[in-house]
Protein backbone atom coordinates (compact mmCIF):
# COMPACT_ATOMS: atom_id res chain seq x y z
CA UNK A 1 0.00 0.00 0.00
CA UNK A 2 2.75 2.48 0.95
CA UNK A 3 4.66 1.76 -2.27
CA UNK A 4 1.57 2.04 -4.47
CA UNK A 5 0.38 5.21 -2.77
CA UNK A 6 3.84 6.79 -3.01
CA UNK A 7 3.79 6.19 -6.76
CA UNK A 8 0.34 7.75 -6.95
CA UNK A 9 1.61 10.84 -5.09
CA UNK A 10 4.83 11.00 -7.08
CA UNK A 11 2.73 11.13 -10.27
CA UNK A 12 -0.07 13.28 -8.87
CA UNK A 13 0.07 15.66 -11.83
CA UNK A 14 -0.47 12.79 -14.22
CA UNK A 15 -3.58 11.69 -12.34
CA UNK A 16 -4.84 15.28 -12.08
CA UNK A 17 -4.58 15.58 -15.85
CA UNK A 18 -6.17 12.17 -16.30
CA UNK A 19 -9.19 13.07 -14.16
CA UNK A 20 -9.28 16.68 -15.31
CA UNK A 21 -9.31 18.28 -11.86
CA UNK A 22 -6.92 18.76 -8.98
CA UNK A 23 -9.44 18.04 -6.23
CA UNK A 24 -11.55 14.91 -6.04
CA UNK A 25 -15.17 16.11 -6.26
CA UNK A 26 -17.97 15.32 -3.83
CA UNK A 27 -21.41 14.26 -5.05
CA UNK A 28 -24.67 14.76 -3.20
CA UNK A 29 -25.86 11.57 -1.54
CA UNK A 30 -28.80 12.85 0.46
CA UNK A 31 -30.32 16.03 1.85
CA UNK A 32 -32.70 15.80 4.79
CA UNK A 33 -33.94 17.67 7.81
CA UNK A 34 -32.13 16.86 11.02
CA UNK A 35 -34.16 17.34 14.16
CA UNK A 36 -31.59 16.36 16.76
CA UNK A 37 -31.28 18.56 19.84
CA UNK A 38 -27.83 19.56 21.06
CA UNK A 39 -26.83 20.49 24.61
CA UNK A 40 -26.67 24.22 25.33
CA UNK A 41 -23.44 25.82 24.11
CA UNK A 42 -22.42 22.55 22.48
CA UNK A 43 -18.96 22.68 20.96
CA UNK A 44 -18.48 21.77 17.29
CA UNK A 45 -16.89 18.44 18.22
CA UNK A 46 -19.89 17.51 20.38
CA UNK A 47 -22.30 18.46 17.58
CA UNK A 48 -20.28 16.49 15.05
CA UNK A 49 -20.09 13.40 17.23
CA UNK A 50 -23.85 13.45 17.84
CA UNK A 51 -24.65 13.82 14.15
CA UNK A 52 -22.29 10.98 13.23
CA UNK A 53 -23.76 8.73 15.91
CA UNK A 54 -27.30 9.49 14.73
CA UNK A 55 -26.26 8.69 11.17
CA UNK A 56 -24.60 5.48 12.36
CA UNK A 57 -21.36 6.75 10.85
CA UNK A 58 -19.18 7.35 13.90
CA UNK A 59 -15.45 7.19 13.28
CA UNK A 60 -12.39 9.30 12.45
CA UNK A 61 -13.56 12.73 11.37
CA UNK A 62 -12.56 16.36 11.15
CA UNK A 63 -14.75 19.37 11.83
CA UNK A 64 -14.91 22.91 10.51
CA UNK A 65 -17.26 25.69 11.58
CA UNK A 66 -20.19 25.09 13.91
CA UNK A 67 -19.54 27.93 16.34
CA UNK A 68 -22.27 30.38 17.36
CA UNK A 69 -24.99 28.68 15.33
CA UNK A 70 -23.03 28.72 12.09
CA UNK A 71 -23.10 25.75 9.68
CA UNK A 72 -20.85 22.87 10.61
CA UNK A 73 -18.99 20.68 8.13
CA UNK A 74 -17.81 17.22 9.12
CA UNK A 75 -15.40 15.18 7.04
CA UNK A 76 -15.83 11.51 7.91
CA UNK A 77 -12.77 9.65 6.72
CA UNK A 78 -13.07 5.92 6.19
CA UNK A 79 -10.28 4.14 4.29
CA UNK A 80 -12.42 3.38 1.23
CA UNK A 81 -14.71 6.40 1.25
CA UNK A 82 -14.94 9.96 2.48
CA UNK A 83 -18.15 11.78 3.28
CA UNK A 84 -18.75 15.46 3.83
CA UNK A 85 -21.68 16.20 6.08
CA UNK A 86 -22.91 19.77 6.36
CA UNK A 87 -25.46 20.76 8.96
CA UNK A 88 -27.06 24.21 8.84
CA UNK A 89 -28.75 25.04 12.18
CA UNK A 90 -30.86 27.86 10.68
CA UNK A 91 -33.04 25.45 8.71
CA UNK A 92 -31.92 22.09 10.20
CA UNK A 93 -30.66 21.08 6.78
CA UNK A 94 -28.37 18.06 6.73
CA UNK A 95 -26.49 17.51 3.53
CA UNK A 96 -24.42 14.38 2.97
CA UNK A 97 -21.96 14.24 0.10
CA UNK A 98 -19.69 11.38 -0.85
CA UNK A 99 -16.31 11.87 -2.42
CA UNK A 100 -15.94 10.29 -5.83
CA UNK A 101 -14.10 6.97 -5.53
CA UNK A 102 -10.73 7.28 -7.19
CA UNK A 103 -7.91 4.85 -6.56
CA UNK A 104 -5.15 7.52 -6.23
CA UNK A 105 -7.26 9.41 -3.67
CA UNK A 106 -7.97 6.25 -1.65
CA UNK A 107 -4.28 5.33 -1.68
CA UNK A 108 -3.24 8.83 -0.61
CA UNK A 109 -5.74 8.80 2.25
CA UNK A 110 -4.44 5.43 3.41
CA UNK A 111 -0.85 6.67 3.18
CA UNK A 112 -1.56 9.78 5.26
CA UNK A 113 -3.75 8.07 7.80
CA UNK A 114 -2.43 7.97 11.34
CA UNK A 115 -3.71 7.22 14.81
CA UNK A 116 -3.58 8.70 18.31
CA UNK A 117 -5.48 11.87 17.38
CA UNK A 118 -9.04 10.90 18.25
CA UNK A 119 -10.72 8.57 20.70
CA UNK A 120 -11.25 5.64 18.39
CA UNK A 121 -9.63 2.34 19.31
CA UNK A 122 -9.32 1.10 15.74
CA UNK A 123 -7.73 4.35 14.63
CA UNK A 124 -5.20 4.05 17.46
CA UNK A 125 -4.56 0.43 16.48
CA UNK A 126 -3.85 1.63 12.96
CA UNK A 127 -1.38 4.09 14.51
CA UNK A 128 0.30 1.21 16.35
CA UNK A 129 0.61 -0.69 13.06
CA UNK A 130 2.15 2.39 11.43
CA UNK A 131 4.72 2.47 14.24
CA UNK A 132 5.33 -1.24 13.69
CA UNK A 133 5.98 -0.59 10.00
CA UNK A 134 8.49 2.11 11.00
CA UNK A 135 10.23 -0.24 13.44
CA UNK A 136 10.22 -3.01 10.81
CA UNK A 137 11.84 -0.76 8.22
CA UNK A 138 14.64 0.15 10.62
CA UNK A 139 14.97 -3.52 11.61
CA UNK A 140 15.13 -4.63 7.95
CA UNK A 141 17.93 -2.14 7.33
CA UNK A 142 19.93 -3.31 10.35
CA UNK A 143 19.27 -7.04 9.91
CA UNK A 144 19.92 -6.74 6.17
CA UNK A 145 23.27 -5.08 6.85
CA UNK A 146 24.17 -7.85 9.26
CA UNK A 147 23.19 -10.60 6.79
CA UNK A 148 25.11 -8.87 4.00
CA UNK A 149 28.24 -8.72 6.21
CA UNK A 150 27.90 -12.40 7.05
CA UNK A 151 27.83 -13.37 3.35
CA UNK A 152 31.47 -12.97 2.38
CA UNK A 153 30.79 -13.81 -1.25
CA UNK A 154 28.59 -10.75 -1.77
CA UNK A 155 30.43 -8.42 0.59
CA UNK A 156 32.39 -6.56 -2.06
CA UNK A 157 29.61 -5.97 -4.58
CA UNK A 158 27.13 -5.23 -1.81
CA UNK A 159 29.58 -2.69 -0.43
CA UNK A 160 29.89 -0.98 -3.82
CA UNK A 161 26.12 -0.79 -4.20
CA UNK A 162 25.79 0.65 -0.70
CA UNK A 163 28.48 3.28 -1.36
CA UNK A 164 26.88 4.22 -4.70
CA UNK A 165 23.47 4.65 -3.04
CA UNK A 166 24.93 6.64 -0.15
CA UNK A 167 26.83 8.94 -2.53
CA UNK A 168 23.75 9.61 -4.63
CA UNK A 169 21.73 10.30 -1.48
CA UNK A 170 24.43 12.69 -0.22
CA UNK A 171 24.43 14.48 -3.58
CA UNK A 172 20.69 15.05 -3.27
CA UNK A 173 21.00 16.29 0.32
CA UNK A 174 23.66 18.79 -0.69
CA UNK A 175 22.05 20.10 -3.85
CA UNK A 176 18.26 20.06 -3.99
Amino acid sequence: MYALSTMAMNHRHFFQEYYGDSKTPFHLESETTYNGIFPDNAKPNTIAQQILLDLNMDGTHYVRGGRNGKPITIWREAPLWMKRITYTPDNNNLRIERQESRMPTILEELHRRKGFEQDYLLADLWGVIVDLVIAAMVFWVLSGLWMWWELKITRQWGGWFMIAGALLFALFIATI
Binding site: K114, G115, F116, G127, V130, D131, V133, I134, A136, M137, V138, W140, V141, G144, L145, W148, L151, T154, W157, G158, G159, F161, M162, A164, G165, A166, F169
Partner: peptide, 24 residues
Amino acid sequence: LYLAMFLLPWVLMYGLSSLPFSHH
Protein backbone atom coordinates in the same frame (compact mmCIF):
# COMPACT_ATOMS: atom_id res chain seq x y z
CA LEU B 1 20.39 -7.94 -1.70
CA TYR B 2 22.00 -5.45 -4.08
CA LEU B 3 18.79 -3.48 -4.57
CA ALA B 4 18.51 -3.19 -0.81
CA MET B 5 22.13 -2.08 -0.45
CA PHE B 6 21.68 0.66 -3.06
CA LEU B 7 18.35 1.93 -1.73
CA LEU B 8 19.31 1.57 1.94
CA PRO B 9 19.51 5.36 2.66
CA TRP B 10 16.00 5.87 1.28
CA VAL B 11 14.47 2.97 3.20
CA LEU B 12 16.09 4.22 6.41
CA MET B 13 14.99 7.80 5.68
CA TYR B 14 11.38 6.83 4.90
CA GLY B 15 11.24 4.72 8.05
CA LEU B 16 12.69 7.30 10.43
CA SER B 17 10.88 10.25 8.86
CA SER B 18 7.53 8.53 9.36
CA LEU B 19 7.94 8.97 13.12
CA PRO B 20 7.40 12.78 13.13
CA PHE B 21 4.32 12.26 10.95
CA SER B 22 2.93 9.59 13.24
CA HIS B 23 3.80 11.44 16.48
CA HIS B 24 3.49 15.03 15.33
